[in-house]
């Protein structure tokens, strides 16, 4: 009879213990950064980079809901971001409404557009959908170029800088929590069922079109939110900020982190925002590196870095002695580990 240890991580593999160590270190780093920004010891430039990182987290996690969890291939995320950015910026400039209201309306308009675009196009499959969403993104860009109210190719300037590190952080956290909860709800299981096998899902009574449109609209809403934050961070937006290239950058984050892993998207968004800043001198190679990353990942590790694993799976949260509500039977532990897929 083995003696039961009272240590929280007893029985964990070395790999899991290292993951814990890494997670704790990252948590401490996050706390340190927050304290630093609060006390003003983090310099202005790096704070700006961190804001962009949080915005990218929102974009990547929301695109992951569409591409990763629901298995629909959207290439138009920059279009929704643009809609949110322009709507919120115009409301700020012309009406000077409060920042949260403006962000919410930007997200709402993006969601509505996502709904109306999704309704017809989501009947298409895979690569056709990719092209249709790409086309949508381009149409948004062309419309923005041609309207008077958006300033056309000159763009919109003089947007008040209302996005702070903390508002970006809180909204990114909110995005992670909301989308994470959706994934674990019965709606989320329906999304995943659509991804795994549309026909089987339909046979099980899932209204596949409804769930695809739902995922699309939710993803669009968060992209619109990110767009609003982006506009009030940059203080200037023009149609060139929302090209196909931007959609690809978000896609790279999702694919690198793992299609179907929120943790992966968050980590990839941070790495791919901060790394290029650190490697400024190699700026012209950035898109080449992105391209090689996409090809290399698909050839070597198509599931991305984390596959569909989340932090809680990797840490084995449910097995930590101190957090456990009751002692599960010995056999019950084995069935965990995967996440039921």
């Amino acid at each position: 009879m083995r003696k039961e240890s009272i240590l929280p991580l007893s029985g964990f593999s070395l790999r899991q213990k290292l993951t814990w160590l890494a997670a704790v270190l990252m948590g401490l780093m996050l706390v340190a950064v927050n304290v630093g920004v609060y006390r003003g010891t983090v310099d202005f430039y790096f704070t700006g980079v961190l804001v962009v990182a949080w915005i990218n987290v929102i974009l990547a996690v929301s695109l992951n809901l569409i591409n990763g969890f629901t298995g629909q291939f959207s290439l138009g995320h920059a279009g929704f971001m643009a809609v949110g950015a322009y709507v919120s910026a115009l409301l700020t400039i012309h009406l000077n409404w409060p920042f949260p209201v403006v962000l919410l309306l930007g997200a709402l308009v993006a969601a509505l557009l996502g709904f109306f675009i999704g309704l017809p196009t989501l009947r298409l499959r895979g690569d056709y959908l990719a092209i249709a969403t790409l086309g949508f993104g381009e149409i948004v860009r062309v419309v923005l170029l041609n309207l008077d109210i958006t300033g056309g190719p000159r763009g919109l300037g003089g947007i008040f800088p209302k996005t702070t590190f903390f508002s970006a952080e809180v909204l990114a956290a909110l995005t992670i929590i909301v989308i994470g909860n959706i994934i674990r709800s019965s709606h989320g299981r329906a999304f995943i069922a659509v991804r795994e096998d549309e026909i089987a899902a339909e046979a099980m009574g899932i209204d596949t079109t409804r769930y695809k449109v739902l995922a699309f609209a939710i993803g669009a809403a968060f992209a619109g939110l990110a767009g609003g934050l982006f506009a009030h961070h940059q203080m200037f937006i023009d149609p060139r900020s929302f090209t196909f290239q931007r959609s690809i950058e978000i896609l790279v984050m999702v694919v690198l982190g793992g299609l179907g892993s929120i943790t992966g998207s968050v980590i990839a968004a941070f790495v791919l925002t901060i790394l290029p800043e650190a490697l400024r001198g190699m700026a012209e190679y950035r898109m080449i590196v992105y391209a090689l990353l996409l090809i290399g990942l698909m050839l070597v590790r198509p599931q991305g870095l984390l596959g569909t694993k989340e932090l809680r799976d990797m840490l084995g949260i449910d097995r930590v002695r101190w957090l456990k509500a009751e002692q599960p039977a010995a056999g019950a532990l084995k069935s965990h580990g995967g996440d039921g897929r």
Partner: peptide, 20 residues
């Protein structure tokens, strides 16, 4: 592999050629 994987690779190749 899946068609999505092939599509992502194709996008990658396109970006590679263009940026090179």
């Amino acid at each position: 592999s899946t068609r999505i994987a092939a599509l992502i690779t194709a996008i990658g190749v396109s970006f590679l050629i263009q940026n090179a």
